[in-house]
Design a protein around this nucleic acid. Structure first.
Lengths: 230, 230
DNA sequence: CGAGGTTTTGAGCGAATTCAATTCCGGTGG
DNA sequence: CCACCGGAATTGAATTCGCTCAAAACCTCG
């Protein structure tokens, strides 16, 4: 666990500190620690004490809510630049568990640091606010998918969102989710996800190789998602 | 549309300004306007320009996302004290439509006012942050319901949440949602919601009179929700 | 090459939807 | 006060979508 060099962070422009006064960053950056974890690591557990937040510099993380019945629901997927786990700012425990889906490279920002940033630079809270707003928007979109769309449409919706999230120029998208995890995200069972995706692969809607996939017929998917009524 | 008397607002303790410097409130309150609308009023539409946010002082509002296919998804229900519609703070349009389910009493807070508050009092942004965090938490809970629970469990979950939201001491809860709207919230069809609730009424799980309901056997519902696996 | 997990495929089942009446209820006008 | 209207709620029957259970095909990596 090393102190971070936030000033020269490769993802600073996209990350939280991108919007913050450089001087403040310089003064406080040694309180942030950077570290790596392998895929599968549980960063924190739902309900656990939230004594630090994180910035994801590399890799993909799932935020998960668990249900007694053994089912779990992925509530959000995080990619490079995303900020998460700050529930502790309000004395709350974590609302969900965070699990690395790939090897990850993280910055850990302990609560005291966040507090200092909050008082030192008003724009920091704004940046936080903006993150929270975007997160809310994403979860609402997920709720729409889960509540108002059927299996096929949900998978299509996910693929398109995932594409967007990685920039439309990216040809091959990483897909570090198993079919089972896609099910946990979309409220479907493994078999259902598999059936839909297997068919689309046969029909040439997308192709898949080594944990990455490439959309070949995005139109087909778009049609399913927005034109679903007819 | 009258200027508000925020200092003496009946719900100030629970509302946004409860956490804010009284002096600032006094100075800026005349920029806020209070007004009433009948049930059914659309406060704003999804995608519309967000030039003001609102505090709900009385009544109940649904936030809705629409789907081309004619289905709609309620993403959140607002009650007295809730704050909403502030997407404009970041130059965004509204992410959802807001519709009054009952006659409502509102405060309208134009963007310039919000901006002033943001700079005048750092705790204001904190208050906002806290609201956004709670909203996120609620929508995540909804996503869990939609993705990981079946019909009966979702209805049970809703009734309990609704009870909680109105304070456990409240005997008779207002329920200004039609069965159809409950369906829009829970990702179910009218008939499914109706079947479940009609049976529970027969079995004495709750009773219903004039748009209000009272839980008689909350344990039964709790069992369905958390013990769902077995 | 073999082992273990993941994906795919098949067949049957069940939960929720769809389609179609019927009943209930609040409000209106006679 | 009561009959009647229209929308909402309820109930029933048939259908369908997604789930469950079960087995086979596929990788991936020791």
């Amino acid at each position: 666990m090393e102190p971070s060099d936030c000033e020269n962070c490769a993802i600073r422009s996209v990350a939280l500190f991108g919007e913050i006064d450089p001087e403040t960053v310089a003064r406080l950056q040694d309180q942030a620690q950077e570290f790596r974890e392998p895929a599968g690591t549980v960063l924190y557990e739902e309900g656990g004490n939230a004594d630090a937040a994180f910035t994801l510099r590399e890799g993909i993380i799932k935020l998960v809510r668990n249900q007694p019945g053994g089912r779990e629901q992925i509530v959000r997927l995080l990619v490079t630049g995303d900020f998460f786990g700050a529930e502790g700012l309000f004395g709350d425990g974590h609302h969900h568990s965070a699990v690395a889906l790939t090897p990850v490279f993280l910055c850990r920002l302990p609560n005291p640091l966040l507090e200092q940033l909050r008082t030192a630079d008003p724009t920091f809270t704004n940046a936080l606010l903006n993150r929270w707003r975007r997160a809310l928007n994403e979860v609402e979109t997920l709720a729409l998918d889960l509540g108002a769309r059927k299996a096929e449409e949900r998978v299509a919706s996910f693929l398109l969102h995932w594409q967007t999230k990685h920039g439309p120029q990216a040809e091959w998208l990483p897909l570090p989710l198993s079919r089972s995890e896609l099910g946990d995200l979309l409220g479907l069972r493994v078999e259902t996800v598999s059936r839909v995706m297997a068919r689309w692969k046969r029909e040439g809607v997308f192709e898949e190789r080594g944990g990455h996939l490439r959309l070949l017929d995005a139109d087909e998917l778009h049609q399913l998602v927005d034109h679903s009524g007819a």
